[in-house]
Simulated assay, not measured.
Amino acid sequence: MQLGRWRVAWEKLLAVLLVPLLVGCSDQRMSFDIASSKHSLTLIRVQNFFWERTANYSVVATRMPDCMRRHEMGPGGADSKVEVYAPGNEAWILKQGKRMFVVETRTCEGFAKLDGEPEGGLGPLQGTFQMRSGTLTFVVAPKREAADRAPASE
């Protein structure tokens, strides 16, 4: 009879110790508002267990009320940054390490993995999705200095 009580107690203790391993999933989302919250790109980062070195990424292109669509980027480094560039025409280039994707917000349907940098370049950097203190954030790119934009004096 005593053995049965110890077994039940041991099973309860084991269950309590295993709970942290089961709640290790991290599903984080952060938006880059293009013109407003109705026109945005939202990065979704899902990491199944805290000890994994990879996470699954996807992006949601939104231009409400006309369109909204989620596109899978696939697995990437758990702490990798995703840079957002604006080449124009409501197209956006997402660069994650060596991987690059193009997504558009005109119809929200266009999405493709790029094999290399486009001929016209990436466009200006808008900002970077990155992990900070365990939280997915979007860091806006610094604005160019006024001197860089001013015409050269003759």
Rank of each mutant, 00 (worst) to 15 (best):
I44Q: 14
T107W: 12
M100V: 06
G88T: 06
D33W: 10
T62N: 04
D66V: 13
A86T: 12
V19W: 10
L18G: 09
L21N: 13
M131G: 02
A91T: 14
R45W: 04
K98Y: 07
T137A: 12
L136F: 00
G110P: 05
V16P: 07
G121P: 01
R5C: 12
M131D: 01
A55C: 04
V59A: 02
W10C: 13
A55G: 04
F49H: 12
R53Y: 05
T107G: 10
T42K: 03
I44F: 07
K38M: 11
K98M: 11
E90H: 12
A15W: 07
P124D: 14
E52D: 09
L125H: 06
G110E: 09
I93T: 02
K95W: 01
A35V: 14
E72P: 04
F129V: 00
G127E: 04
T107H: 11
G134W: 00
M100P: 06
D148I: 04
T128G: 01
R5H: 14
H71Q: 02
R45C: 02
M100A: 09
G24M: 05
R63Y: 13
C25P: 13
P20H: 01
V23P: 05
L21F: 11
F50D: 05
E104N: 03
E119C: 10
V60R: 08
V23D: 06
L22P: 08
